[in-house]
Design a protein around this nucleic acid. Structure first.
Lengths: 221, 221
DNA sequence: TCGGGCATCGGGGCAGACCCTGAAATCCCG
DNA sequence: CGGGATTTCAGGGTCTGCCCCGATGCCCGA
């Protein structure tokens, strides 16, 4: 907090009371002014509309659907022309959400709650987005870089590849899939390899790519 | 807070900074005195040992293993004869943990973080356990009552096996799981084998059992 | 005390998954 | 016609997952 500058006015939205209080305390201790502390994106939009807010700190999952209410609130703010800085806080590193947040324009941030281990991190992020800058958690950045750009990953698969993936997702082995689809095992292997590639699943000693492919399929339905 | 009574002295342990700050703030606002705010069960045990603590508020999953460190800290306190009230806070409704908490004796509570929606709830819980009473989240109580013993295939799994299965379901390889849970790869293989057996997943050339295990896990949630 | 359950881990072996390389056929579009 | 996309499949090689066998240690209840 530079001497002589008015404190940034922050509105906090998180349906979890303990987190909301913790965020509020950390910001207040860091010299910011918490002008509102609410539990839904809609309430936050009301507060911002009334003016007197410089930055909004939003949880992503909130009522009513506990899905992407924070992102929606951000998108609506931008559609209505609001220039307030927006910092999104999430429990999980979700590249899709990070992309949506960044796509909403300048003055936007996306951090993981569990990785905000120092009060200074949160305060600095709020200050950055209030000045029109962007803040993204480094782990999320790494995932964004690894992940091929584009539409829904599954949309890149051919019909045959989708059929094979569906069989995988039912717990079939390659041999089982070959019998079900009247193919050779070698053919199944080729399709599986193409699926992995198109889904952007890089080989790593830490992950089990077949399971990840299945999870991608299940997650898209 | 009754007039004339000294404020209850509370120690808070949670590795997530925002939560730790939120819990501390809510307790302080409720008239309690937060005498310590730490990030591990071990640090909390040290504080309690030095005396001057009436109630400990503990997260369940903390370093070093992010498993049941809060429960372990409670159990160790009781073994060493400590009578401090202990309130456990968890992200998940885990009946096993609630059972262990209750089994540790009087002056113990188990609440879900996300369902502590009013400051008064947390303050009252702290006051209850400090007086030797018990507090359990009603949803957890309902699960304890409803829960069929041994029906659900996943209920046959030990806590460790469930941890491993959870990691599998996130797409981790055995090597990745070994790193996450600080185990040897051989240990992970053993657990995976036990999981397959307990879930009744027979080997067959047609199916991919690891994927089936993951599907069983996802289907039960 | 003993046995069972649980957790941990090692050596060794086998099979499937994955991948590289290569090939062929069909269809569609510029 | 030529090239790209899609589909199909083979040979060969590597690595991980799975499993068998073995072992140790701790805790708890009979």
């Amino acid at each position: 907090m530079q001497p002589g500058r008015p404190a940034l006015r922050v509105a906090v939205a998180d349906d979890a009371m303990l987190l909301r209080e913790g965020i509020g305390k950390v910001l207040a201790d860091g010299g910011l002014e918490v002008v509102a502390s609410v539990s839904s994106g809609e309430e936050l939009a009301d507060v911002v509309e009334k003016g007197a807010v410089d930055v909004a700190v939003l949880d992503i999952r909130m009522p009513p659907h506990f899905r992407d209410e924070g992102i929606l609130a951000l998108e609506r703010l931008r559609e209505s022309g609001s220039q307030v800085g927006v910092l999104l806080l999430s429990m999980y590193a979700t590249p899709e959400y990070a992309m949506r947040a960044l796509a909403a324009g300048a003055g936007t941030g996306y951090l993981l709650k569990e990785r905000v281990s120092e009060p200074r991190t949160l305060v600095a992020a709020v200050e950055t987005v209030s000045g029109g800058g962007s803040v993204v958690d480094p782990e999320v950045v790494a995932q964004l870089i690894q992940r091929p750009r584009g539409d829904e990953p599954l949309s890149r698969l051919t019909e045959r590849e989708l059929s094979v993936l569906e069989c995988m997702a039912q717990g079939n082995s390659n041999a089982g899939i070959s019998r079900q689809l009247f193919l050779g095992v070698k053919t199944v292997e080729t399709h599986v390899g193409n699926i992995m590639q198109k889904l952007g699943l890089k080989d790593s000693p830490d992950n089990h790519r077949r399971v990840l492919a299945v999870l991608a399929y299940l997650g898209s339905r």
